[in-house]
């Protein structure tokens, strides 16, 4: 059986909120290392990869591998019933028909119990190769969100170029063009504002802004976002969570000119 208690229901709410517009029906794969999810969007252009490690829960118990097939719209409806300060416990039997969600108030004696019917989801898992990325950029998540939202007003696509000069986000549209360049930057008082650029080779790739704006819905999960780029491979957008957990998005580049 699965029993996973999360001190902050809000964390799970935010994760589901961040991915629910990209993927609809997902398997939450539970085993003794934690709860993982991998799902592609309908167009097979973007992929979500979530890992909530067992250390993120207290206690965490999962005796055998269980795949919980859940519709995220249904899950969102139930998670709305949790207060943000509630403690969330996920429970399931070994061959479950339902997943149970228990919300406990830390301050009062309220206990709310919900269940969601599970779905049989035949989802193929993709092997994501280990990649030595040509450029890795860590920057404030809010800054990345701002850039994507600003540029989508002008164009469908953004080129991300990383060179010795820094990282340049540029777009061209019908009304004109836009570009934002960031250089490495260290803020001693506010390290969450740092921009760190590690580059082993110059990279230049073009991506659909629609997907990037969608990924940025995860901005509330982490102060910083990490972008990993190599020429001609999918972009990795990573939001780190406490206890070595993470929410990652992969996006296939646009090809040709």
């Amino acid at each position: 059986m699965l029993e996973a208690r999360l001190e902050q229901a809000n964390l799970f709410k935010k994760v589901v909120d961040a991915i629910k517009d990209l993927v609809q029906d997902c398997n939450f794969d539970c085993n003794d290392s934690g709860i993982a999810l991998q799902a592609m969007d309908n167009s097979h252009v973007a992929l979500v990869s979530m890992m909530l490690r067992s250390e993120s829960f207290a206690p965490f118990r999962c005796d055998r591998n269980i795949a919980l097939g859940i519709n995220l719209t249904s899950l969102t409806k139930v998670l709305k019933c949790a207060q943000s300060d509630d403690i969330l416990t996920l429970k399931a039997e070994d061959a479950p028909d339902v997943v149970e969600l228990v919300f406990e108030s830390a301050e009062s004696d309220r206990i709310s119990e919900y269940s969601i019917k599970l779905m049989d989801i035949d989802q193929e898992h993709l092997g994501i190769p280990e990649t030595d990325y040509g450029a890795t950029i860590s920057m404030p998540a809010a800054e990345f969100q701002r850039i994507c939202r600003d540029l989508i007003a002008l164009s469908e696509s953004v080129s991300i170029e990383c060179s010795k000069e820094g990282v340049k986000f540029a777009c061209q549209g019908d009304i004109g063009s836009g570009a934002v360049t960031l250089r490495q930057h260290t803020n001693v008082d506010k390290p969450e504002m740092n921009v760190e650029i590690n580059m082993s080779e110059p990279v230049s790739l073009t991506f659909s802004l629609k997907y990037l704006v969608n990924f940025c819905k995860a901005s509330g999960l982490s102060n910083q976002v990490r972008l990993c780029l190599s020429n001609e491979v999918p972009l990795l957008v990573e939001y780190s969570l406490a206890n070595n957990s993470h929410l990652r998005f992969y996006l296939a580049p646009k090809i040709g000119d």
Partner: peptide, 14 residues
């Protein structure tokens, strides 16, 4: 214009 390719080109099913 540039074309949007899919992820399956890069990530193979396990």
């Amino acid at each position: 214009a540039s074309a949007q390719g899919g992820l399956m080109k890069y990530f193979a099913p396990k």
